[in-house]
Design a protein around this nucleic acid. Sequence first.
DNA 1: TCTGGGGTCCTAGGACCC
DNA 2: TCTGGGGTCCTAGGACCC
Length: 420
Amino acid sequence: MFALIDCNNFYASCERVFRPDLNGKPVVVLSNNDGCVIARSNEAKALGIPMGAPAFQYEALFKKHHVEVFSANFALYGDMSNRVMSILSEYTPEIEIYSIDEAFLKLNGLPCKNLQQYAADMRKKVLKYTGIPISIGIAPTKALAKVANRIAKKFPERTENVYWIQTEEARIKALKWLKIEDVWGIGRKHAQRLKQRHINTAYDFTQMEDAWVKKHMTIVGLRLKHDLMGIPSLQLEDVQPKKNIATTRSFEKNYTELHELKERISTFAFICAEKLRKQQSCCRAFTIFLHTNPHRHDAPQYHPSAMIKLPFPTQSGMELSRFATQALQRLFRPGYLYKKAGIIIHDFVPHNAIQGTLFDQPNKKHVPLMHTIDHINHLFGQATVKLASQDLQRTWKMKQEKLSPRYTTRLSDIITIHAL
DNA sequence: TCTGGGGTCCTAGGACCC
DNA sequence: TCTGGGGTCCTAGGACCC
């Protein structure tokens, strides 16, 4: 048996933990730059605010219905996620943390009769210890646990946010209820194509021929089909080191000058290298890209990218920054309004297994230097030490007008309780 | 005026090797 | 007239997830 645990409206719930006055009120959380809605409380969903809605288009509605709006506070969400996951880990070592707000658990060797009670306890404990409400779906496969979770979330009165697909009848009933476009692993394109063939529910999908599914949806689609049929085809996955690490941002305004972009790219490269060192790897290549604003039809569009192979593997922020700004000079064309840029590093090798080359060598002095920088930044806060090519005046120009305190990760932001 | 960020996997086709 | 067989690696593009 698998369980899928999912935090309800996670980011919105995190904000509410420290603002209990917002319970029962509409809450939304915005993406970087306060751009799009990325989380909504149930009340906000009921107002018809869609996922991904551009904030500026909904300002009037926010005002009218007194929607509480927050800028994304990832320091808070990351820490709350760790708390939830650590509680779940107490229940079984067989856990796969699937995303910031979801985890699969394998429930082996447990008395099957009591799974419902077991899950209810888990839910109660997480709520009590963290303040985060969760939903739990239980089923014989991962894909079915996803389905069960959806039912648990959709019908809280009947399920108390725990649902177990326990019988074949329950499986079929659940699949007939679930619309094809809501199936985990079936996105917009596949849903569209399946509907044209009158496949409207998850159940219809399980009745299709393997050959068609394999041909049009690859082996991935076929595994999903079998998993939904109750034949376990998806396993619990171990945490794998990342294969790509990206730092990309939209800008608060349009950039037109090379030197402005250089500063941003240098910073992105520096941040990427820092993430890479945490994973104890070096990268052998990176991709850099620029983007004009695709929503503006009155300005010429330009979105170049380049993949650069490094002469030697590196995890040095200085080195990566140097290569990245060199690459930028080749991509940059004057006359465009740049709105976004980013760096994706890839092709990783373990940092202790670097193969040197005859002519190019990484600067060995960078290793202790970077280590020291990481240490200082850990002690005194992110970006205490930066490169001179970064903007030293810049604190953070991202639009974050509604940022909540970092209640759980910064001493000065801890809540104060006034006893009357 | 204002529209996010960070990931994964699979496949086909081309280049290249012996 | 007739032009092999079996591989690997890399890349771009497409699909999906949260």
